[in-house]
């Protein structure tokens, strides 16, 4: 199996209804149909899933660790986005 013959796919599994698909792992398959079936056999053989996505690995664009600071640190100093930032008098309900 060469990588061109059988590229890599990322597998996302919804473990039960009401939850998001989560990354479960990866596998090789020549096409999407087999990728889906391989994913079913490999990642849900103990009943771990109710729905599967497969995505060609090369279709994923990821942020780079070098951009980590620029991407993620600016979000760290905006506490007013979180509910715990606000003081509410005791006894006020449904807030």
């Amino acid at each position: 199996m060469t990588t061109e013959q059988s590229p890599l796919w990322e597998v996302f599994v919804r473990s039960r209804r009401g939850l998001s698909h989560t990354h479960a792992g990866s596998l090789h398959a020549p096409d999407a149909e087999l990728a889906l079936r391989n994913a079913r056999d490999l990642y849900t053989r103990r009943g771990e899933g109710v729905s599967i996505w497969v995505v060609p690995s090369k279709a994923i664009t990821a942020s780079s660790p070098d951009e980590k600071d620029a991407f993620f640190e600016p979000a760290a100093d905006k506490p007013y986005r979180h509910p715990t930032f606000y003081e509410i008098p005791e006894g006020v309900k449904h807030l």
Binding site: D31, A32, T44, S51, V55
Partner: peptide
């Protein structure tokens, strides 16, 4: 399997829209 994929999906590994029934096996 690679030859079949090349014939039917264009380049191998091209994203193929999973049909509703295969995406939701269960």
């Amino acid at each position: 399997a690679a030859a079949y994929a090349a014939k039917h999906n264009g380049a191998t590994g091209a994203a193929v829209e999973p049909s509703a029934d295969t995406a939701d096996m269960n």
